[in-house]
Amino acid sequence: MRSIDLSTVTWRKSSYSNQDGGACIEVSDDFPALVPVRDSKHPHGPALTFEATTWTAFVTAVKSGQLPSA
């Protein structure tokens, strides 16, 4: 697996994030084929990377209610 330098990317916080910085994520749009995702409460912690098509499918499924709720 190839290592990706995320030290200079621009992070965007979830629109569902609240003022208290509750359970939310940040994503970066800096890579055309990959979407890095990190926990906004731990910005210096690890980030997961997803193929852009996989991330788009996940977001679409969440928005349309296709995933079961916990």
Rank of each mutant, 00 (worst) to 15 (best):
E51V: 06
F50A: 07
H42K: 14
A33D: 15
S15L: 10
I4C: 03
C24E: 02
T54G: 10
D29L: 07
T54F: 03
L48G: 06
H44A: 15
A57W: 05
V27P: 01
G65H: 07
V27Q: 01
A33C: 00
M1K: 06
E51R: 11
L6H: 12
A52K: 02
T49M: 11
S28Q: 08
Q19S: 14
F50N: 02
I4V: 15
T49A: 13
F58V: 06
V9K: 01
F58D: 01
D5I: 04
A70Y: 05
A52V: 03
N18E: 12
P32D: 13
S69P: 06
A47M: 08
A52W: 00
S28G: 09
T8Q: 15
S14I: 06
D20N: 14
T60Q: 14
C24S: 05
A57L: 06
A52I: 02
W55S: 05
Y16Q: 14
W55M: 11
V59G: 03
T10R: 09
L48F: 12
T56V: 00
L67H: 09
T10Y: 00
V62Q: 11
G21K: 05
S7G: 09
A23T: 15
V59H: 04
G45V: 11
D29H: 08
T8F: 02
R2Y: 00
G45W: 01
P46D: 13
V9C: 07
S17H: 07
I4S: 03
H42W: 06
M1S: 11
D5Q: 09
A61H: 10
L34P: 02
V59S: 07
Q19M: 09
T60V: 09
A61P: 13
K41V: 10
V37M: 05
I25T: 13
S40I: 01
T56N: 13
D20L: 13
D5A: 09
T10Q: 10
L34E: 03
V59E: 09
